[in-house]
Design a protein around this nucleic acid. Sequence first.
DNA 1: CAGTGAGCGAGCTTCCGCTTGACTT
Length: 782
Amino acid sequence: MQKNLVIVESPAKAKTIEKFLGEDYKVLSSYGHIRDLKKKEFSIDTADFTPEYEIPAEKVKLVNELKSQAQKAETVWLASDEDREGEAISWHLSEVLGLTPENTKRIVFHEITKPAILKAIETPRKIDLNLVNAQQARRVLDRIVGFKLSPILWKKVKPALSAGRVQSVAVRLIVEREREIQQFKSEESYKVTAIFYAGEDKNEIKAELNRRFKTEEEARMFLEYCKTAQFRIEDIATKPQKRTPAAPFTTSTLQQEAAHKLGFTVAQTMMVAQKLYESGKITYMRTDSVNLSALCLNACKEAIKEMTGERYVKIRQYHTKTKGAQEAHEAIRPTYMNQQEIEGTSQERRLYDLIWKRTIASQMADAELEKTVATINISGQDAVFVSTGEVIKFDGFLKVYHETFDDEPDTDNESDAGRLLPPMSVGQQLTGKEIQAIQRFTQHPPRYNEASLVKKLEELGIGRPSTYAPTISTIQQREYVTKADKPGEEKEMQTLVLKGNKLTKKTKKTVVGTERGKLIPTDIGTVVNDFLLQYFPEIMDYNFTAEVEKKFDDIAEGKTMWKNVMQDFYKDFEPMVEKTLKEKTGHKVGERILGTDPASGKTVSVKIGRFGPVVQVGTVEDEEKPKFAQIRKDQSIETITLEEALELFKLPRTIGTFEGDNVVIGTGRFGPYVLNNKQYVSIPSDLDPLTISLEEATRLILNKRQEQEERHLKSFTETPDLEVLNGRYGPYISYKGKNYRLPKGYAEKARELTYEECMAVITEEKDKPAKTTRKRNYSAKK
DNA sequence: CAGTGAGCGAGCTTCCGCTTGACTT
């Protein structure tokens, strides 16, 4: 018979705590929420907002187990997290398990240490119903918004779409950034840099002019002037500067830094972090707190002392600035600071290393720098050249950790860091060695990537640590946005160079503004966003979440009744839903008329169809059925022209026959193809499907045939599952539907491979740890 | 990475926030 049952949210936590509490306590986990609104039904009575909860099927077994353990125990300790969701979990547990106030105690702790837990046991409290109600309000509001808006989209735009308080605003950010970029007009300017000689040693001084020129003409005039100008050091100012370390990791900052430094996606970061957490190497990975336990601070101190000496220690307490932070956990940190390295996959080791360094750096001294600015006067001119140098006097935390920042503009600026100015003195005359005027273009604002979107959402207080990664995957699954690379724009850049008395002009072609892994809105995303923005501007407002959060806080403090808050919201919201549904848009949402088809005289339009964006010729009112064509991936309903739209109807077309069967040119999911006798062959991009000749098409068919014959290199009597095949990247092994790359040297003798050799390759591949992603190179200059 | 290839016709889809396995590939 068990005396005490403790219930926490996470099984990893349960394991640790059980060790601290001894044998009188059994510790189990609820695995998060155990009860929720019904999955497929609205489950809210809109008359009084009573929610209808159910235990999801996959939780029934667990709940039964908890129930039977609770019945056996004298006291049940509800130890879910100390935030809104945690309080609600405790409440649902007490309801579902049929707990009584006499035998139930609610406890909370902020760190998983023996003293903290014993302290919590000594100071139990009751379930805070106000906080529970704040959670119910949050849950019910999200359900109302999601389950009322989504069906409107099914009806007005496309089936299976979705809308919600968080995801719709995330899409809005991306759509609006794209519009900003479209409207952006790049401006040119000329930046002037100079290299001077100082003194007899001819030390070089690099400097930049403190103004830019708008045109080549102005820049040229300035350089002409410099031919005869005098340069003199007017002022040298030195001032100390400090840099302070960044706060320890939260979920959001970990995702950002892992993206920058390790090239991880946010989902990848969370998966690896989960592994580290489960194996006891780091603290909980879904947190919005920057707080570190006293235990950790002490451990940091010791580690720093040993590593770099006492001078490097500076213990700090960080405070969160994030909107709506609930701080139920610590910051993400190593469990044991004295463990600088861990065993594990390469990804695990690298992420751990990042966390360790960030944590330790947060408790290290400021870096002390000295910045020197020399002003160089130009005779007869107001503008001056400025030369800066920066020296690190004391590295402090920089010894272990540098924070990376998003898309810093003007990357051609050389860093001042570590650059020392040569000896010089005020009044000194300088000779110009080389002065350049370089043409520059202003850059459009950067598109969001996963990590920078998370950062923005966090700033707006939208979403929680546990939802950042799922939100990003949802908006991609719904095809509101896609992750893609954007090629840069090739630009000609002029440079005027003054060397001695000679002024020359150079032209250089460079690609600017290349972006990788950026989030780009699709047509569907744009249409849905514009639609929601028009009919539900309140929900789409960037401050909507922040405002309802204020109301949830009032509920938590007992100032308001939660159902009143729901009533208030619903009385405005519901009529808008009704109105939108009744609205006869007359045409489909997002539809655009392109013009008339010269052949038939029918209207040509684009819209979001049942399967995505389509071109339509004719209307349903016409006698003949309208014709449809899916638009290509590189086209958009916002920009497609009438001519481009009509092109799409030229396929499929039959261009002749081959071996008695029709040769048809079409376009499918994977691009243009040739179809002959049920055989599909892709058309390479250097051939135009609209003009391809019968001869070219038959050649493609014959090529494919030959390839297929050559594809099969070897099979084995031992098993039909194993084959050696020839693919487009050379020979490979295929075994039970999986493919394996051949090791070096095997390719040449692919046809002679034995059964044993192949199986060895397969088992070896299976034992290999997960593939490592290539590290991005940040130091490389363009 | 390893080879793929369309077009509704009924019924279904959907939210956010807590947590991990148990499934298939």
